[in-house]
Design a protein around this nucleic acid. Structure first.
Lengths: 142, 142
DNA sequence: TTCTATGCAAACCATTTGCAGAACG
DNA sequence: CGTTCTGCAAATGGTTTGCATAGAA
């Protein structure tokens, strides 16, 4: 899973009219280095070098990246992990550790055929959720 | 989407060695009547008839139903909605209202072909997550 | 200089926990 | 009757908010 460079994100921020601050750059760097980190992990990682970065700044940067279509949030239990990727793809999430694995196409097929064969010893749960406006599916409105 | 009866769940609880309390029955009744409710909605619904039921009791009953394989949690934003169903199935979730729709097979195929055709005007996000132990996929352990 | 971003501190809120008393089997 | 369940009340913890100050362009 190759990531884009920090430079790419700097330019993208600039292009979209947002300021390129050191904090935002650090958040991006953490997202590249940290394998599906939580907001807290990102903050801790940055604090190793920078004296203090506030949660609101971290969350703000994450929301910004989401808005410009470069970040995908993954709800893992009670906290959110973040995936620096513009495109949707399936995940395998460890229920014990919360670790997130990106699934490649071949692995996806494998997982699906496991399920279809009704022999998923490993897979304990599957989520397939589509998001959109209420009028999307067939409007069983309330 | 036909639900099982309250009686079914009473028996199941008994069979599994759990006590059938009025509170648990009320939670089950709410789950049947309330279309993917949150814990809070369940509590409010019960309080209309019963004087007071504590959050811990509601959460306890929900966890119990999950444990015996009769309830599926759906993370919707910051809160959890619950689906009284033993089998995994895809959902369509409204991003504005949080309303959850169960997708039937035909609708699933439709959604998928929309995506493949690269013309998803309605679908803004998709999640496909498999859960299991860390040794499941290809063990990129930490 | 000007407008946006940051840091702080407090608020939020769904969910969890500990424990004494209640009640199912 | 004994073990399990309930209700209370307080704590937890990730995330959000309001506002004064700092800093990017």
């Amino acid at each position: 899973m190759k990531h884009k460079t920090v430079e790419y994100y700097r330019d993208k921020l600039k292009d979209e009219g947002y300021k390129v601050t050191p904090q935002r750059v650090e958040v991006i760097r953490s997202l590249i280095e940290l394998d599906h980190p939580t907001a807290g992990e990102i903050q801790s990682s940055i604090e190793e070098q920078y004296p203090m970065i506030s949660p609101s700044t971290v969350y703000g940067a994450l929301e910004l990246l989401e808005d410009i279509g470069e970040l995908i949030p993954i709800q893992e239990g009670s906290e959110t992990r973040y995936d620096l990727s513009p495109k949707v793809h399936p995940h395998y999430i460890c229920e014990d550790t919360g670790k997130v694995y990106d699934l490649e196409e071949a692995e996806l097929k494998e997982k699906l055929s496991d399920l279809i064969a009704c022999g998923p010893d490993e897979i304990t749960r599957v989520e397939l959720n589509f998001y959109g406006p209420c009028n999307g599916p067939e409007s069983e409105e309330d």
